[in-house]
C-alpha cells in the first residue's frame, strides 16, 4: 500500500525554489533514508508531508489525503525534529502524560523505559533541555507515538556517539516489533546505512535516486589505474567523479556496467555514501580542484 504519493511537488520560499518537482511514492512498512546535501529540500519535504506547511503546486497525498489541515494525517504521522515545541509550563513528565489522549497507540511503557535508560529528568522543562537531551526526548516521543508514518529530520543532531548508536538500535528494534513506515533524513548516510532498506536521494529540490540500498551499492564502480587507460575507458561514459591520484594515476567513478576488465586498471566498489555524494556534487572533481 502506498503511504506517500508526491507528484511534481513544488515549494518556494521568497522566490527561491526549495522543492522543484519532487515525484516519488513510498510503500508502507519500510525504513527509507532521505538523503541530500544541505539545502537540498529535505526539511521542506518532511514539513509538507507532516502538514505543517503547504505546497505551492503539485500533488501530495499521505494515506491518500492532503496532509495540510487533515486530522487523519495528523493522527497517524509525526515529524520529529529539533524545532519540535512543547508548552514552556509543562515538565517532561507532563508531556508524556498528555500524549496518550492524542495518540491512540501511544506506548507508555516504551516511553517510560527509554526515559529511564537515557536518564532524563521528569521534572525538567522541555525548553531548558540541552541540545542533545532535547533530541533524545523528541526521539523517545516520536517512537512512543507508534504512528504509522514516523518521520525524523536529522534526529541525531546534538546527540553524542553513544546515544546515536543507542537511537539507531532502538529504532530498529521498535520497527521490527511494530512495523511502520519510517522516513529518516540525514546527511550522515554511513552511520545509519545498516538500518535502511531504501534510499531517497534528493538534490536541489529534485529526486535524484529512489532505490533500495542494495541497488545503490551496486550503482557505480570506481576505476583506478594509469591516466591514459582510465581516460580511454571513461571517454564516452557518464563520469560521476574523477580524481588525479598522482602524476600518472587516475581514479574515476562511473555507472556500473559489465565487461570493464582491462589490464592496468583495478575495479573497486563504491559505497552508498560515496554514490550519494558523487551524484549530488556540483562538479566532477573535488575540493582539491580549488587548491590547484
Amino acid at each position: 500500500m502506498v503511504v506517500i504519493d508526491c507528484q511534481n511537488l513544488q515549494k518556494k520560499y521568497k522566490g527561491m525554489a526549495a522543492l522543484n518537482g519532487i515525484t516519488f511514492q513510498l510503500e508502507d512498512h519500510k525504513i527509507t533514508g532521505l538523503i541530500g546535501r544541505n539545502g537540498a529540500g529535505k526539511t521542506t519535504l518532511l514539513k509538507i508531508l507532516a502538514g505543517f506547511i503547504r505546497e505551492n503546486s503539485g500533488e501530495v497525498r499521505v494515506f491518500s489525503n492532503k496532509p495540510f489541515n487533515n486530522l487523519r494525517v495528523s493522527a497517524n504521522s509525526i515529524l520529529v525534529d529539533d524545532q519540535m515545541s512543547f508548552p514552556d509550563s509543562l515538565t517532561l513528565a507532563d508531556i508524556l502524560e498528555a500524549a496518550p489522549s492524542f495518540y491512540k497507540r501511544w506506548d507508555a511503557g516504551l516511553a517510560a523505559s527509554l526515559f529511564d535508560y537515557f536518564r532524563l529528568n521528569p521534572k525538567q522543562l522541555h525548553f531548558k533541555l540541552s541540545k542533545g537531551a532535547k533530541a533524545t526526548f523528541n526521539m523517545i516521543f516520536g517512537l512512543a507515538t507508534r504512528c504509522e508514518l514516523t518521520m525524523f529530520d536529522e534526529p541525531t543532531n546534538g546527540m553524542d556517539e553513544a546515544v546515536r548508536s543507542d537511537f539507531y538500535r532502538a529504532l530498529l528494534k521498535e520497527y521490527i516489533a511494530y512495523p511502520r513506515s519510517i522516513l529518516i533524513s540525514s546527511h550522515h548516510l554511513a552511520e545509519m546505512e545498516h538500518l535502511l532498506e531504501d534510499i531517497l536521494l534528493i538534490h536541489k529540490g529534485k529526486v535524484v535516486l529512489h532505490q533500495s540500498l542494495e541497488e545503490v551499492k551496486e550503482y557505480a564502480v570506481a576505476l583506478q589505474g594509469q591516466t591514459d587507460i582510465v581516460e580511454k575507458l571513461t571517454a564516452e561514459k557518464d563520469v560521476l567523479h574523477i580524481k588525479q591520484l598522482d602524476s600518472h594515476r587516475k581514479y574515476a567513478v562511473i555507472k556500473k556496467e559489465d565487461s570493464l576488465g582491462v589490464e592496468g586498471v583495478t575495479i573497486q566498489t563504491v559505497s552508498a555514501t560515496d554514490v550519494c555524494m558523487f551524484m549530488t556534487s556540483e562538479r566532477k572533481g573535488g575540493i582539491d580542484d580549488v587548491f590547484k
Binding site: D28, R72, S89, A98, S101
Partner: peptide, 27 residues
C-alpha cells in the same frame, strides 16, 4: 497492512482543551 487510527474533530478538540487548561493553569 496499515492500521490507521481515526480521531474525530470533537475528540481532538476535547483532548486539546484538557491539555491547554493544564498548560495555562499558571496564567
Amino acid at each position: 497492512m496499515m492500521f490507521l487510527s481515526n480521531s474525530t474533530l470533537g475528540e481532538v478538540v476535547k483532548s486539546q482543551v484538557e491539555f491547554k487548561l493544564n498548560t495555562y493553569m499558571g496564567a
